[in-house]
Amino acid sequence: MPVKLILRNKEYEVKPGMMLLDALKKIGVVPESVIATRNGEMILEDEILKDGDVIKLVAVISGGMW
């Protein structure tokens, strides 16, 4: 089963066994601009993604509405 990454309404798939940082680079997402969560818990860039993981990427940039 592939690993699924979701950012806003876009979905990406990568192979399991990859490090999160490499997965982000692969799908063209700037690591500094997102926080990754799995089952609601934040995970770090050195996390190895496993079979069937669903990673929700939370965009951190907003337009300055504070």
Partner: peptide, 28 residues
């Protein structure tokens, strides 16, 4: 990024949608 992490860790429910006019703005 740290403030997003704080809001997530504290379980603060915030508006995630961007202001519709902010799309493509210079600051972003």
């Amino acid at each position: 990024r740290e403030m997003t992490a704080y809001a997530l860790a504290r379980g603060i429910e915030y508006i995630y949608e961007e202001c519709p006019y902010a799309d493509g703005s210079q600051s972003i």
